[in-house]
Amino acid sequence: MDDLPAPYLLSLPLHAVTEVYGEAGLRRRFSLELSSFAEAEQVVLQRALRLASRLHREDRRTREPVINHLLRVTLRIMCHYRVRDVEVLAAALLHDSVEDHPRDLAGGEPEDSTSAALGVLARDFGARVAWLVGAVTNPQYDPARDKDEQYREHLVASLGGEPWARLIKVSDFTDNGAGVLYTIGPKVRRAATKYRAVVPLLRELVARPDTPLHDEVKAHIAGQFDRAERRFAAILQPS
């Protein structure tokens, strides 16, 4: 992988890096992008990647390790959203850590492992990183109510006042929505049903004046939302 020309790897879309070079390619792409950051910033992001790699070391999706998802979410924010805020990027790498591995992160089984895990992130990466991760961490849902409805309510409540957290959630959504292409069986319709209803909410959040993105980036994301809605509608058409 190290002998692959850097300009070539930097020119590839993230999905192409994933398909052709897998985790090694995404890690190499991350390393190349990181070289333009200050040394102290590189140290923070490398620490965040090491922690994410440790926590998710056994986690897999249908076709790949979860770390691929975390790298793509972060690289998308860095490269396509043009964000160089290191705390936002560290939170993107760690955005699933508290939701998926609160007890591992907190070092035991405390009564409130989510709060304890966020406390560890605040201690090791700062209060803002922990706050951003908390904003994109799904709460425990009421089993007596529709889970998808509660998810949408959580998005509106948690992201409405957190412009920077919106970037993490939108990149996460983009990656998960694209992942529908690689899903088979009943999960396809289930994912399309869940994500189709989320698109209008995220579209409105991205369009807000306080969302910290350039207008052309917002337009690019709007186009991605358009394609996602068409894809989900096609999946959900009656046979």
Rank of each mutant, 00 (worst) to 15 (best):
Q42T: 13
V198I: 14
G223A: 08
T18S: 10
R123E: 10
L75Y: 02
S239W: 02
R72M: 09
E162G: 02
V20I: 15
L89C: 07
L202T: 09
L26A: 12
W131A: 01
V98N: 05
R231S: 08
D112R: 08
V73W: 00
R123H: 07
Y195L: 11
S97N: 01
V217C: 09
L49P: 02
D124A: 05
M78N: 06
R82K: 03
P212E: 13
R166N: 11
L32V: 12
D59M: 14
I235H: 02
N176S: 14
P13G: 08
V88N: 02
L10P: 10
D215N: 05
R190Q: 12
H80M: 15
E153T: 04
A233G: 14
E111D: 13
H95W: 00
R123P: 04
R29Q: 15
V188H: 10
E204W: 15
D226T: 15
A106I: 00
L121V: 03
L75C: 07
L75N: 06
H154Q: 11
R128Q: 01
T18E: 08
L34I: 10
E41G: 12
L12P: 07
T174S: 13
R166E: 12
A157T: 02
L202D: 10
L159M: 07
H56M: 03
G179H: 05
H80K: 14
A122P: 03
E39W: 06
V120H: 06
L12D: 02
Q46S: 08
D2R: 15
D142V: 13
V129T: 00
R82A: 04
A127C: 01
T211I: 02
I77G: 01
S11C: 11
P65F: 11
L34A: 07
V86C: 00
Y81G: 02
E111W: 06
P163G: 03
R63S: 09
V198P: 05
E109W: 04
G223N: 08
T183G: 08
D146T: 14
A106P: 03
L181W: 11
Q224K: 15
E41P: 11
A106V: 01
E23K: 14
R230S: 14
D215M: 09
P200K: 10
D210K: 01
L167N: 00
G161S: 11
T174V: 13
A48L: 01
L118F: 10
A157L: 06
L121C: 06
H56R: 05
D175A: 12
R123D: 10
F225D: 09
T114H: 13
H95E: 00
R123Q: 09
G107R: 11
L202H: 10
Y182C: 11
P7K: 03
R29K: 15
G177S: 03
H56E: 06
P102R: 11
Q150K: 01
A178H: 13
T18F: 06
V170G: 07
E23N: 13
S53E: 13
Q46A: 08
R145C: 00
A52R: 04
V133A: 00
G134W: 03
P186C: 15
W131K: 02
R227S: 14
G126E: 00
T193I: 11
L32E: 14
A91F: 04
V129L: 00
R72D: 05
L118I: 06
K187M: 15
A106S: 04
F232D: 05
V88A: 02
L167R: 00
E162T: 05
V83E: 13
T137C: 02
L236F: 01
S239R: 05
E23V: 14
G177D: 02
F30Y: 10
D142E: 13
R189H: 08
